[in-house]
Nucleic acid binder design. Sequence first.
RNA 1: GGUCCUGUGGCCGAGUGGCUAGGCAGAGCUCUGCAAAAGCUUCUACAGCGGUUCGAAUCCGCUCGGGACCUCCA
Length: 503
Amino acid sequence: MPALQFYNSLSRQKEVFQSLIPGKVGLYVCGPTVSGESHLGHARPFITFDIVYRYLRHLGYQVRYVRNITDAGHFEEEGRESEDKISKKAALEKLEPMELVQKYTNLFHWAMREFNNIEPSIEPTATGHIVEQIVMIQKIIADGYAYEANGSVYFDVEKYHRHFSARNMPYGILSGRVLDDQLETTRELESQEEKRNKADFALWKHAAPEHIMRWESPWGEGFPGWHIECSAMSTKYLGDEFDIHGGGMDLQFPHHECEIAQSAVCNHKIPARFWLHNNMITINGRKMGKSYNNVIKLSELFSGNHEILTQGYSPMTVRFFILQTHYRSTLDFSNEALQAAERGLRRMWEAFTQLNKFEVSDDVVTAGDLDLEAHCFGVLSGLEADMNDDLNTAKVLAGLFELVPVINSMKDGLISKDALTSSTMRMMKEMFNTYLVDIFGLKEEKKQDDQKLSAVLGLIADIRRDARARKDYATSDKIRNQLLSAGIQLKDEKDGGVSWELV
RNA sequence: GGUCCUGUGGCCGAGUGGCUAGGCAGAGCUCUGCAAAAGCUUCUACAGCGGUUCGAAUCCGCUCGGGACCUCCA
């Protein structure tokens, strides 16, 4: 069995994964900025790294999964007056930043639950770690790689690059950017005059009087720069050096590059061994952006309440859709593609449900169909290798889909129950459960286990069967059609039975 | 302009130098009172042009197209 490999952005190649401490993995993923509602773009990294988390646990690792909440910065909410105009109002009338942050944090957590993502081990907030960030900044200043200007503190990128290139940690080691080129291509930004060099980035920002999110610091009242929070929190909870750092590709530069620089100064090493980056989601071939008016919030995605959407798509449909693509490929989002995923998931899930109903005996030692046995065993045996190859979830799903006709044929009696050996049947049941439920985190979305509903539908099915036996098709069709319009689809089975499904 | 990624059949998407990816949609057949579901079969491929090779969608070059990032934006 090939060992687990990840594509490491740092080395730009696949590497065999080995944890720093045997049996334990430290995983840090950049979390959301809770100044607005999560959108489709947020779905991908958090589902992707949920799979990473689940898979490492499946392999037997004890994983500490840290995913931060970025809740510090300059936040505003649409429809409310800007901060400086409301300073004279009573406290309850003012925009309270923590209220805003709480609102969107709650919405984020709601979305994560909808996607069936497992909660991280630790979910630290930036505002809860101001002290750690200040300490880290002080250390960088003490080492001479940062300077203060008008109450703000900037990281001296040029000096860092000059000194750390010799220690194999040049600025640009992760993103592949050459510092000299960047000096020329930087766009104009505020406060540039405070910086010694355009490439420098802020560690601490001086807060203007109207800025309501502010903390005391050695440099006056202000708030932390964007990159320092992740360095401070990952170091605190995972140590100077940990196993995996994840996030979207858009974070590779500057965010992760700056994290490396900060940690390199403070801890003298690159903070993470493996840097994993998921690719972005495009919509109808275009990137998501306000200028294209194609930013879809998750609540809109689920409800279908957006002009781009012809219908709503359930969280599991979205999850399945994301899993059908390798995480490092761009993923194009369209109604047609989502509808395909929706139907594919339904087909997969029905077969899975059916498979779990099969009774597996111990007595089939020799397969009734040797070719089929070899095929099924081959597919099942190859799944782990696909997963180990940089998490090729698309290929694993393709393999499982190859077994769907086998399951359905067994159900319909087209393939004998003893065509496969008992051990392969057990393996199939086990693998479907392991991958679909444990690793991919898929779950039943429609409640079919309601006992009262089952009893009622069983009675109706009986009545309909009697009607059909009398060739009273007017009655049988009426039952079927009216149930369908109520969202319940009856299916006449090959063996004369009736099954039903909520649609 | 710079750095990097990418271009697979109607749509979405795996992929290895030589062997059917898979899903959705379409077509035919089987099953069925009809339908749905299911099963079987089947049609559309590797942007273009060169090169390397016995052989390339897969390696190299060029052209054209798409995308991400380029320092306070999460």
